[in-house]
Nucleic acid binder design. Structure first.
Lengths: 209, 209
DNA sequence: AGTACCATGTTGCAAGTACAACATATTCTC
DNA sequence: GAGAATATGTTGTACTTGCAACATGGTACT
């Protein structure tokens, strides 16, 4: 992967490669399914995926690993608990053969531009999490769906838009069942609240706020 | 309220008052129920509550204001969308007569220690949001409850602990109904999974992970 | 066009949940 | 301790959801 100063992290940094050198970052390769971060690890660094991708997993009480998120090439991870200095609440594994670049936080914190960029990344993630929480805190799937679609409308600035998620992903995002989601969507359509076809949606209700 | 360098934001800063002066922060007072931040506002700053407290509200499609969180004295707010430069997704109102201190971000970003501290605050909030999301993404209330209690166990390092929330707050936190929560708790007790009395809980199940 | 494959929609059913209303228990105040 | 106020537990009902199984529709490939 080519490092570019167009990514949020390197924004405003002339020569990312030089900066990486200066920070003493180290590259590490992982085989598919090997563990990058164990739950409970305390790491005083954060990382960027240079090649491949990684899965963030959380193990529930029954020992099942649940997928929390996927980290693709160029994205960074572990910055939250890295910065905070607390043990990792998640396990991170390589989805395929992958290479990651570790940034030592003590050095990073001395680079004003990098810290600012990291702060922006953190703030972005924060907003994203808040929005999802907003949807999930609705009591019914119907309200979750409406809340989600309302966000999409705001994001696109139009009553008509496409969404990136397929039904299964949308159901997962809203923490529900795919067929239950289909049911709710069909019902909303019958009621004339909206129309849709695959990932194309047209909203016919208006927010009263 | 007395500003102290024991708060996260001022950690490592000898003289917070002097720093505030240097940054050109301004104090602003709000009457109870007056709006501190309107939804949609773009603010290039963040704020700390000096006196009183504030509510973070989100208005849903039907125009109902839902309480997202409460900001108490000494806590900061608006740092996420302030830093990110995006319009506020929430409305923030004074719960009582309140005074807040605005920090201009352009100045703050020049202060290395402050930026690092802000990054830590953001990371902490991030972890908090992630945990709540973790609970809310469970499909059933039963699993949400178990997930929540598991977090409490980890946090307290013991099978026996008190929680800060009463039933109504716990139900809200888990995005469910109070009586439904009571029902689930009673059922879990009958099954011998746990025991409780008001906010005191004793877990009798073990995580298999 | 034919086939296979995948995404989406639909149905039936069992179980869980929201909501309301009431019962009991606890705490607070006097 | 009495009574009020608040918190928690319980019950009943209508509805929603999860789940499984199947139907339909679209897409890709040959």
């Amino acid at each position: 992967m080519v490092l570019s100063n167009r990514t949020t992290l390197f924004c405003g940094i002339d020569d990312p490669a030089k900066m990486i050198e200066k920070l003493g970052c180290r590259e590490e390769s992982f085989q598919k399914d090997s563990i990058i971060v164990h739950k409970g690890d305390i790491i005083r660094s954060f990382a960027m995926v240079l090649d491949g991708s990684a899965s963030v997993l959380r193990y529930d009480i029954e020992g099942n690993g649940n997928l929390v998120s996927v980290i693709d090439e160029g994205e960074i991870f572990a910055e939250a608990f890295g910065v905070e200095g607390s043990p990792s609440p998640v396990t991170i594994v390589a989805r395929e053969n992958a290479t990651v670049l570790w940034f030592p936080l003590d050095k990073v914190l001395e680079e004003r531009t990098l810290v600012c960029n990291l702060l922006i990344v953190s703030a972005e993630r924060n907003l994203f999490l808040t929005k999802r929480l907003e949807h999930l805190s609705k009591r019914s799937l119907r309200d979750k769906v409406l809340s989600f679609l309302e966000e999409m409308r705001e994001k696109n600035g139009s009553d008509e838009f496409d969404i990136e998620l397929d039904r299964q992903e949308m159901a997962d995002y809203l923490a529900s069942d795919r067929s239950a989601l289909s049911l709710v969507l069909s019902k909303l359509r019958k009621e004339g609240m909206l129309d849709f076809r695959k990932n194309h949606f047209v909203l016919k209700f208006t927010p009263k706020a």
